[in-house]
Design a protein around this nucleic acid. Structure first.
Lengths: 388, 388
DNA sequence: CCAATTACACAAGAAGCTTTGTTAAGTACG
DNA sequence: CGTACTTAACAAAGCTTCTTGTGTAATTGG
């Protein structure tokens, strides 16, 4: 805070304006600085925003009056020499957002304040057999309940971010989905906005997952990231220049049903499981987890199967890493728990085949990942309103 | 121009400022509107910029005084009823930029005004045997000569964009290059800046090529584009969200030496050429052009070789198209002249393997592509200075 | 030649920021 | 314990820029 300005890249429309624009700009700048600094005095804010102190004073008074900032009167230990300054703090509880992850078997929701601190979280079961309205109602009820846990009504939420599988277009319609029955063609944004009196933002789950990794996960500080989800299915989320990449048809990352063999990777694990226990019928995920477990226990064939699986993933990743040149590859999904068993061979393959091999890491976020990304997405929306 | 504002996304630092910022902002907005409108009256500018007429008048007077705009007094045919308005025009000749493409065998340069109109173009031969200083001197001489053709000294250029093969880092250093001898490790930006008294911007040639396609080529209006160069080598340039994608190590698109077989595509064509005329020693490019020529003439084996080649390219592209979801694939380089012979099979393969197949088209820009992209790159830099 | 229409020009006023000066509230040190 | 120093808060004056409003200039149509 000593003199250097906090400079953040923000996309602003080329705008013209009258004097009130100046106030909006300065007010937004000071609010942003205040939030990033945590606690600051008027002088510090004025210096950082390159504004005179009287101006900073007027602006902070406004912010306090509107509830965006508050004075914190606790005395600081390290006193300076002169008259002690008032200290101000961003009032994170001035607004809240929710994030939701809609899975086939589980619904998760979180509510966070404007600092991104999670103040409530909940989950609810979902079932394959649910009709679409039942599922939508369950989502709405979960959001209402989670908000209530945080002491909030839904109409107090600045935004509700929603993550779902499938291709989601710019208007929040599910153009295509093969996981959730009846989901294809659904106007998810419209249906949820009808049930929840708050702005609803729908996005593809893989894009939210990579956003979560960038925010609180393994990819902090890295703006070009490939996120690979391995669990009951394969998924891909790309972060390009710090932002989730959507693509022309919002179908970026849809590698599931392509005909090449690079991404048809489960056969090794399913094959192994079938071989060891032919009677059991297993899903991809169950077979994979079974194989990983046995590999950990030291079963040579299982180790080989996992290694082949990892190698296949690595081959698929190479086709993407060389053209894209990301800083990092994050492995997420339930198989991320395999850790080095999976990451090691993938890293080795990338090291071998890439000019600039990115670092490969396993996600540590677990199953809250998508809801967390949805929170971040909703916060981005709220920030945009706050700092415009 | 009737009332609607011209709104352009510009990346601006979150800034605070005093009243002069307002003037800069409004001035930039009006200048931008004026350039996009071509010719406009004061009232039109005031309406479009959402500014009062007196303000618009003062600003335009300033712009005229500084040389960025000029009054065009030619009488318009479609007279309105009342007092005729003064008409103003963006003064494109207030600034110029240069764009340079450094190839192994040819150097190309162009000079354009601030509207992007090419006012001079030239090329010079280059040789494999040239030392690095010789090549740099030749580039500098070509830029000087082309600028002189346009009636300009080099120090009047607002920017000189330079495209080269190889991995070019953010500071304009060539981190790696296998085409040009001695190029690896060269501080190209520094060397050229020492020879040319103007801001020099160095960028990878594939990124400039895709920029050119987006500006004046086949990809106009499409913000997510994969550009595939096929000629003496393979190259890839990605346009993501309207901007060239660089990647974490500025190595985006470096697919040349990866070990997978998808991109090792010349073997079909070289094999064919060897088979037909075993004595001749040919480069990849020569073999490819020979095969394309014979295929056009109706040679069945040549047609098959080209089809296999195209299919291989298609397979490589699929690994990229599905994760990235571009709107368009542009085929550039000397083999783009093969046209449908190449585009047809690639499009067919993408149609078969992609959820949302992008349109595949052959570039129509020819060999000026990189210099043209360098001009656009330099113009972007100049615009940034102009509209900040 | 006059009315209607449109654009230009100037003056007054409001909003916002900065600078300058004064008062208030602490600490450091003899 | 009191004086001097340091820093913050407050107030007033002045500058820049934009807007609104009123009057003037230039052209067309009847």
């Amino acid at each position: 805070m000593e003199g250097q300005t906090v400079q953040v890249e923000v996309s602003v429309r080329q705008q013209s304006g009258d004097a009130s624009l100046l106030r909006r700009l300065n007010s937004a700048a000071i609010l942003r600085i205040l939030r990033e600094a945590g606690v600051a005095t008027l002088s510090e804010l004025a210096r950082a925003a390159r504004v005179s102190r009287p101006t900073a004073e007027v602006i902070v008074d406004e912010l306090v009056a509107e509830g965006w900032a508050e004075e914190c009167d606790e005395e600081q230990g390290d006193r300076q020499r002169g008259r002690p300054a008032k200290r101000f703090r961003f009032r994170a509880s001035a607004g809240h957002v929710a994030g939701v992850g809609i899975g086939a078997g589980t619904l998760r929701a979180m509510v966070a304040d404007l600092n991104g601190t999670i103040v409530a979280a909940a989950e609810a079961p979902a079932y394959e057999a649910m009709t679409v309205p039942e599922r939508l109602d369950a989502v709405a009820a979960l959001v209402r309940g989670t908000a209530a846990d945080a002491g909030l009504a839904v109409d107090r939420l600045a935004a509700v971010g929603v993550g779902t599988t499938g291709v989601v277009d710019g208007a929040g319609r599910v153009v295509k989905s093969v996981i959730l029955p009846g989901w294809t063609g659904l106007d998810l944004q419209g249906e949820l906005a009808g049930r929840l009196p708050a702005p609803v933002l729908v996005e593809n789950d893989m894009r939210l997952a990579v956003l979560a990794e960038h925010w609180r996960g393994a990819a902090q500080g890295h703006d070009d990231v490939v996120y690979l989800f391995t669990g009951h299915r394969l998924g891909l989320g790309l972060l390009v220049g710090g932002r989730p990449h959507r693509g022309a048809h919002a179908a970026s990352g849809e590698i599931g049903r392509q005909s090449g063999e690079h991404w048809q990777v489960f056969r090794h694990l399913v094959g192994y499981a079938m071989e060891v226990e032919p009677g059991e019928l297993r899903s991809h995920q169950q077979a994979a987890e079974f194989a990983v477990e046995r590999a950990r226990a030291g079963d040579g064939r299982a180790v080989r199967a996992v290694r082949d699986f990892a190698r296949n993933l690595g081959e698929g990743l190479v086709t993407l890493v060389n053209p894209l040149d990301p800083e990092m590859v994050v492995i997420g999904g339930s198989l991320a728990r395999a850790g080095d068993l999976l990451v090691g061979p993938i890293q080795a393959h990338l090291d071998e085949c890439c000019l600039y091999p990115p670092k490969v890491v396993a996600s540590g976020l677990g199953s809250d990942c998508i809801a967390l990304g949805a929170v971040r997405w909703a916060l981005d929306h709220a920030d945009h309103l706050l700092f415009s």
